[in-house]
């Protein structure tokens, strides 16, 4: 049993590493997770992550002591960027871990009852959410609520679950005519068993693939909300708000904007490559 588990892992890795660039993606993701976990313990100026003021060193260009420069009140930009990773990643994970199960339940109930009123109601509701531009909806929700990280996660979750509903709907509406599902119904198996034991295992690989691929987009969405001032509030660092404060001082104090922007780009790129690798590994074609 132990041996076959190792075998599975080995085969999965072989499939994942077929394309070298997805290995780079894994390395990037692993690096960010590492930085996020350690956070204030490894940055050069841990106290700069919070409310710290040092006007003597304000608006300093990148130098040996401050590789990414300092901001308007003298805080180290590198420390603040690294310090923001934990919340950034946490936000993506929480948003996806809430919206995927909600979407799955909605999609599976609609798909399993395809053609019945439940299906029509649930999927038209899903369509309504999908029809509204995601950013507009998220901005609207986040601005009505008190601006903080929890509410911005809520806003993103509200517009993210419909994609998972669509996915689960597609799989379950085709599975419901499979003989093993019909057999389960005929034999008197209860609905929860059919949903979680028969349908869920068939959705899992495409859901996981979509979740890793979506991670990057959720991060962008979170950064956009925080750029608009609707995410994590000062003095805590967030990549989006750092950029929005920095753009006012472009191009003279370019380091305020460029480094957080690069962090976002690398982060999103890493997760997209990682998602491609997972897709290769699980054999799901997500395009």
């Amino acid at each position: 049993m132990d041996e076959s588990w190792k075998e599975t892992l080995k085969r999965s890795w072989l499939k994942y590493s077929e394309s070298k660039i997805t290995v780079l993606g894994l390395a990037i993701v692993a690096g960010f997770v590492f930085l996020a976990l350690l956070g204030e313990r490894i940055v050069p100026y841990p106290e700069h992550i919070g409310s710290f003021v040092d006007f003597a060193n304000a608006s300093g260009a990148p130098s040996g002591a401050h590789p990414f420069g300092t901001d308007l009140i003298g805080r180290d930009v590198l420390s603040r960027i690294v310090g923001s990773f934990r919340n950034t990643l946490l936000m993506g994970v929480i948003v996806l871990c809430i919206s995927a199960p909600i979407g799955f339940m909605v999609g599976v109930i609609a798909g399993y009852n395809k053609g019945k009123p439940v299906d029509t109601v649930l999927m038209r509701l899903t369509d309504i959410f999908l029809a509204i531009p995601p950013l507009v909806l998220a901005l609207a929700i986040a601005s009505v609520l008190e601006p903080n990280m929890t509410n911005s996660m809520l806003a993103i979750t509200v517009m993210w679950w419909p994609w998972y509903a669509r996915l689960a709907y597609g799989v379950s509406s085709s599975l419901r005519t499979e003989n093993y599902i019909i057999y389960a119904e005929l034999t008197g198996v209860k609905l929860p068993h059919i949903i979680f034991r028969e349908i869920l295992p068939n959705c899992l690989s495409s859901m996981l693939t979509k979740m890793t691929l979506d991670m990057g987009y959720v991060i962008i969405m979170g950064a956009t909300l925080s750029y608009a001032g609707l995410g994590e509030q000062a003095p805590k660092p967030a990549l989006g708000s750092m950029i929005s404060q920095g753009v006012k001082y472009m191009p003279e104090q370019w380091w305020l904007t460029v480094f957080p922007a690069i962090a976002i780009i690398v982060l999103v790129l890493g997760f997209n490559l990682f998602g491609d690798g997972i897709s290769n590994m699980l054999g799901t074609d997500e395009s």
């Binding site: 003989n179 093993y180 034999t187 008197g188 198996v189 209860k190 068993h193 068939n202």
Partner: peptide, 25 residues
């Protein structure tokens, strides 16, 4: 059923498929 391809859940082992009726009956 006629089609052996769709009679069994491809994501579950034979043991799991065979325990489905046992769990109910």
């Amino acid at each position: 059923f006629q089609d052996p391809g769709s009679s069994l859940n491809p994501k579950r082992t034979i043991r799991k498929s065979l325990t489905v009726p046992l769990q109910v009956h």
